[in-house]
């Protein structure tokens, strides 16, 4: 069992018994390998459901916006950054949320494991420190965990929560020698037509289920632009222009706010690397305005502020 599990249960028990919070939001064991299900525990006698493992990739800040009660929540580095953004955007008050910070070693990408197994179905996946033991009918493989992390985790530079009330373990060393934008630069190097085709192929299989949007803690608009009908900005068929409009605007709506938590990509049933849209914006925001989303509560997100001397070479 992961070392955090006991600590989460202990904290949940304490917070619920002392009535410090009304509920604890965390994860429970999933029903399929390499999945954990977000759960909301309201009574101290249910805290045994709470677990922690390398499959807790979904961003729990998604369950916090506009809440009225007081909750405790387990938060990885990225989750904590999204909580910071919620605070900046007045989606929740700081005194409403008790953050159980989880220094994180990255989350496992089950698609990478599937790909490795080439059609063999994993029936059980166990974590043991830096290895993953995957077993199924007639096979057992021990994999190096690091090689099967989500793409965003491999280049994560905020593994430790940036804000918390208690920490579930010692801070982990931050990755400092990662190149966050290698893939963006590769696309940038293509010519215009090549980039058009690249993104065409990227979203060709999109079924417009909006899992990427809904898995995102930043997408809390009461009415999404795709649902607006007067005027209707985007058609609802699988027309490539409509699909692209959706992906472009979804990405633009999270510009300067996206923490690259990877929930969108993790949620996509068609395995579309949707982060290719948001990462470009993240890179631009960093280069133009020197801002990283959700790292400090003070100050405003980059599109909610300006400097008189902002770059404007592109303006005549």
């Amino acid at each position: 069992m992961h070392a955090y599990t006991e600590k989460i249960r202990e904290a949940a028990q304490r917070l619920l018994t002392e009535k410090k919070v009304d509920a604890v939001i965390g994860f429970r064991h999933g029903t399929v390998p390499m999945m954990s299900e977000p759960v909301c525990v309201r009574h101290a006698d249910q805290v045994h459901q709470l677990v922690w493992n390398g499959f807790c990739g979904i961003n729990l800040a998604n369950y916090l916006a506009k809440r009225k009660d007081r909750v405790a929540v387990t938060a990885k580095g990225c989750d904590s950054r999204n909580i910071v953004i919620h605070l900046q955007e007045n989606q929740i008050r700081r005194d409403q949320v008790y953050i159980l910070g989880a220094p994180c070693h990255g989350m496992v990408d089950r698609r990478k494991v599937w790909e490795f197994l080439k059609g063999r179905e994993p029936l059980q996946v166990m974590e043991n420190g830096s290895s993953l033991k995957v077993s199924g009918k007639g096979f057992e493989e021990v994999l190096e965990r690091q090689a099967f992390l989500q793409d965003n985790c491999r280049i994560c530079t905020h593994r430790n929560p940036v804000i918390y009330d208690e920490l579930l373990g010692d801070p982990v060393p931050e990755q400092t020698d990662v190149d966050r934008y290698e893939d963006v630069r590769r696309v940038e190097a293509m010519d215009s037509e090549g980039r058009w085709r690249y993104f065409n192929d990227l979203i060709a299989s999109c079924i417009r289920c909006y899992a990427c949007r809904n898995a995102c803690p930043l997408c809390y608009c009461p009415t999404c632009f795709v649902d607006e009908s007067r005027p209707q900005w985007v058609g609802k068929t699988l027309d490539p222009t409509d699909t692209r409009t959706f992906h472009l605007l979804r990405a633009f709506h999270v510009a300067g706010r996206c923490t690259d938590c990877g929930s969108c990509e993790r949620a996509c049933p068609m395995s579309i690397p949707v982060r290719q849209f948001t990462k470009k914006l993240e890179k631009d925001v960093k280069e133009l305005y020197g801002y990283e989303a959700g790292v400090v509560v003070e100050g405003r997100p980059p599109l909610d502020t300006y400097r008189p001397d902002d770059p404007q070479d592109f303006i005549k």
Binding site: P38, C40, Y63, R208, Y210, A215, P269
Partner: peptide
């Protein structure tokens, strides 16, 4: 109440 908590209201289940 328990079943619904985790749901993010995407269309994955219904579309698949």
């Amino acid at each position: 109440e328990e079943v619904q908590f985790a749901c993010i209201n995407c269309g994955t289940c219904t579309f698949l």
